[in-house]
Every structure is written in C-alpha cells, then in structure tokens.
C-alpha cells in the first residue's frame, strides 16, 4: 500500500498572531511552525500501516522552502520520502489542485489529509481533492482499518459515530481519534539521522486557479473590562444589562 500524507505547515498554537504590510500578510517573525495536528494524527496512523502492513509513506506539502523543516520532521518520524510543491498555498482549491497532480503522478492507494488546518480552518482540501481525483472520500475520520483493498472507517457524526465500508483508493480527512494524542511520535535520534539521507523532492506547481486571495486580516476586538456583580444584587445586574450593555 502506498500512502500519501498531506501536511500543512501551521503556526504553533501558542504563537502570537500579528500582521504586516497593511494587515495583508501574516507576520511570521518569531513564529514557530509545526505539523498541522490533524495531519499529524494521519501521519501517525500511516506509520501504523507502515509498521504492521509494510506500507510506504510519502509526505507532501505545498509551500516555499520554509516548510522543509516540517517535512524533515515527518521524515524523522518515519515517512519514506517527502515532496514539496514549490509555491505559496493560497486557498483550499489551489492546494487541492496541486496535490491532485502529485497523487496522479504517484499512484497512491490512500491519501490522508487533516480534516482542516488549524491556521485558516478552511476544511476544504480533502473534499476537493477527492472530487478532483474522483475517488472515495471519508471526512472527520476517527478510525481506519484496511485489509487488501477493503476499508473499514469510522466517521464522527453529530452525536455519534458512523462505521463505513469502502475501498481503496481513498481520500481521508483525518483528525484526533485516528490515533490518540498519547500515540503521537517524537522523532528519535535514529529517525533524525535517517532523515538526513531521505529524499525531499521539490516539484514546481502546475497552473491552477487561485480562487481567493487575502485582502485584509483583522484581529478580534480586545475584550473590554469585566464588571463583577455580587450574586445577591440581581437587580443591579438587570439594570446594567438593560441600560449599559443594552442587551435586554
């Protein structure tokens, strides 16, 4: 089985978010980038298929050279080969078109992408990718077993779980549940040393539609001061909600 894990390079959740160039660009100065957590759950499940079923894992990311450390980390964790599509990822449609080209060239059986990236939270890439490839798609996937071409997948749905049977080739939108947080891998020294010798291919992008572009970023307004009202002064609270907050 040949697996492609799509990896988004996202700011660490503790990063301070700022914008530059008249609020049109994200300020990456001093920001630490990590593997998108939803993608990391997918990569970890792919490692399970590698170790138990002899699968081959390639990882791919759309981005400039700055995404290479994240790909190298994926190689250190255990992926066999990495591909970087050398362009700035703008929106989900654009990224999915780029990934589709890699999938067509690589003949992958299973493509795992995160359900969404934790930076822009678009949630579009796996769905569009499956559509472009015209293959099966399971989103919000929290369980994945494969025997030959037969796939049993568990999908998170409102208020419960849904178990589905399908076949390869398949696109999966992964998330926590594919594996648990405690199963995520820390690259060990042997992995880091082996990653030095693994192939990181850089491919040029194909002509694709860029559906949207960033016009302006805005941070949420800072929270105002909080007024505390004693629990035995309900009338004061009602008065404030009527006359100051004007919400009732």
């Amino acid at each position: 089985m040949k697996i492609l894990v799509c990896i988004s390079n996202v700011p660490d959740t503790t990063s301070k978010i700022n914008f530059t160039e008249d609020d049109t660009k994200f300020d990456t100065n001093g920001v630490q980038f990590v593997i998108n957590p939803n993608d990391e759950f997918g990569l970890t499940r792919a490692m399970w298929f590698k170790e138990k079923q002899g699968a081959t894992i390639h990882v791919v990311s759309v981005g400039e050279v700055s995404v290479e450390p994240t790909l190298r980390k994926a190689l250190a964790i255990g992926a066999d080969e990495a591909i970087r599509i050398n362009t700035i990822p703008t929106d989900g449609l654009f990224v999915a078109q780029q990934l589709a080209e890699v999938v067509k060239n690589g003949q992958y059986d299973l493509i795992i992408a995160g359900r969404e990236s934790i930076d822009y939270n678009g949630g579009m890439v796996p769905g569009i990718l499956a559509t472009l490839l015209d293959i099966n798609f399971i989103n919000t996937c929290i369980g994945l077993e494969i025997e030959g071409d037969a796939v049993t997948a568990i999908r998170e749905i409102d208020g419960g779980k849904e178990t589905l049977a399908t076949t390869l080739p398949l696109v999966v939108g992964g998330q926590k549940g594919l594996v648990e947080e405690s199963e995520l891998r820390i690259p060990n020294m042997r992995g880091i040393m082996m990653a030095r010798k693994k192939v990181l291919n850089v491919v040029e992008p194909t002509d694709s539609i860029r559906g949207t572009e960033d016009a302006k970023f805005e941070k949420p307004a800072p929270k105002g001061a909080v007024k505390l009202v004693d629990s035995d002064k309900i009338e004061e609270l009602i008065d404030l909600l009527h006359n100051e907050a004007k919400v009732i």
């Binding site: 503790t14 001093g30 290479e68 450390p69 250190a76 820390i186 020294m189 880091i192 990653a195």
Partner: peptide
C-alpha cells in the same frame, strides 16, 4: 514556552531545531 527574545532560533540549523524540539517534547 521557551523564551527566545533575540530570535536566536534564526541562528540554528534545521537539524538543530529538530533535535532540540524532539528533546523538548520528550
């Protein structure tokens, strides 16, 4: 959260950071 007031991470190689972050996570 590691303080890096002078952006010293910019002086480190990709491998330095990979090694450091693995140790940090561990």
């Amino acid at each position: 959260e590691a303080p890096d007031y002078y952006n010293l991470d910019d002086l480190l190689s990709e491998e330095h950071k990979l090694v450091r972050d693995a140790a940090r996570q561990w």
